[in-house]
Design a protein around this nucleic acid. Structure first.
Lengths: 243, 243
DNA sequence: CGACTGATTGATTTCATTCAAATATAGTGG
DNA sequence: CCACTATATTTGAATGAAATCAATCAGTCG
């Protein structure tokens, strides 16, 4: 093991990134001041997860927290017979692994290649102890996640297929970096199966519903993974349960 | 207005309660040590909410946090046309009002008379600043709520009516003070409409499903608000998606 | 005791699912 | 580059679980 000295260490390139991380402004990491970035970088282990691979397993010991810096992941839970509920899709800035339990309560897989920073529990604990604002930020994050999940319950419990699909598109459009205006041209990296499992529907119903919205002129489907919102306000109205 | 003196104030009876509060061990208040209870009691305003009354309104400015000390409340969200999704039922020890937003994201009404302590935002902020363990406890609470809501998404998105009703009963049985073993005799203070709106079903389906579970011998219904779990393990299996 | 609200039961309908097939897209090796 | 295979998506027809419509039954409270 090397001595305690650090400034300009051999792995400085790997410790540098926090300062230039594009996801930082949108993530919990923004709670750490520029001057303290070294501590953050020292705890973060960058990692790439290839498309389709899982990196968090429901029921397994929760050894790490994850902060997404790129790509898209699906969060989901499985029933014993294989039925799947996708809880959401995570993009850059999303913090994963929050759970007071010592096992993960959800699973996560990369939809498209994911870049993330891994924090071991002990190191995360040390960070939180050293930077109390970080804990406040985590609480804020957890509260937002909670509100999102509760919105998900409304969608799954009380919305029609049409409203669910519209809600998904509107939320996805708004879900980019929070400073940008909602996009009207969307790229959907996930499959119809992912969408169906998120909306509590079947792939056939998702497909039919998209076709219907297209025929009604609310959107266009240049390819199966591209959506052009032609009447965003109308889609938002449908999503809200008014259309 | 009285002077700043406080110890043994005229309202000492109202400032005493934290020490003898039955809900404290199960609530976020357990983060505050006995020695500091005065600070807690100074911030808490006890309140009684009569059955049927609301005390938190989605969309209204989030001026307070609430800590339930008795009774049962329903948390819910409404769609513009009146469709309702009940997000959960809160009992003693439940902390309400968590939201990074400055407006409430959910509404709350008393199902049966509710006792709670109200904390204004500024006072809560002061408490959290003074007792960092409290913030940790809040994060823990929020994480648990998140896990519960995600479980709710699985229920609403992928479970059958039968599985939903069984899940509700099993969760309600387990939802008492966390130290007690799950009860097999349940009292349900909420109406079938509340249950239906929680499970994403209609009252007719809830009623029919309960009748079916009764005919199958999994439970008995001495009155419409009393449930006797005759085969708790079988019910748990149904709830988990195995029955 | 009637009027009211909430719960149960029955008959019918409907929205989404399931089953089935066709079409489009992506990937691979010749 | 293209044929060929595998996978994903779309579309169609039939089925089904829960919703809706409708009526009865059971408690509660002036």
């Amino acid at each position: 093991m090397p001595a305690l000295s650090v400034p300009a260490s051999p792995v400085s390139a790997a410790h540098e990134p926090c300062a230039s991380c594009g996801a930082r402004p949108y993530s919990v990491c923004s709670a750490i001041a520029d001057a303290d970035l070294a501590a953050l970088a020292g705890a973060a282990v960058p990692q790439v997860v290839p498309a389709g691979a899982g990196f968090m397993d429901e029921g397994e010991p929760a050894t790490h927290f994850f902060n997404m810096t790129g790509g898209t992941a699906r969060l989901f839970k499985l029933l014993p017979d294989g039925r799947r509920q996708v809880l959401g899709f995570a993009r850059a800035g999303h913090f994963l692994g929050l759970a007071s339990a010592d096992s993960y309560t959800v699973s996560a897989e990369a939809v498209e290649p994911v870049r993330l920073c891994r924090f071991s529990r002990p190191r995360m604990r040390a960070l939180v102890d050293g930077f109390p604002q970080l804990e406040r930020r985590l609480l804020e994050t957890a509260s937002n996640e909670l509100a999102t999940a509760q919105e998900g319950m409304v969608l799954l419990g009380r919305k029609t297929a049409r409203e669910r699909v519209a809600s998904f598109l509107v939320a996805w459009a708004a879900g980019g970096p929070s400073c940008l205006p909602p996009a009207t041209r969307l790229h959907l990296p996930m499959t119809r199966t992912d969408i169906a499992d998120y909306l509590g529907l079947t792939i056939e119903t998702v497909s039919r519903t998209l076709t219907r919205l297209r025929k009604e002129g609310l959107l266009a489907l240049p390819t199966s993974s591209e959506v052009l919102m032609l009447r965003p306000a109308a889609l938002a109205a449908v999503a809200a349960g008014e259309g």
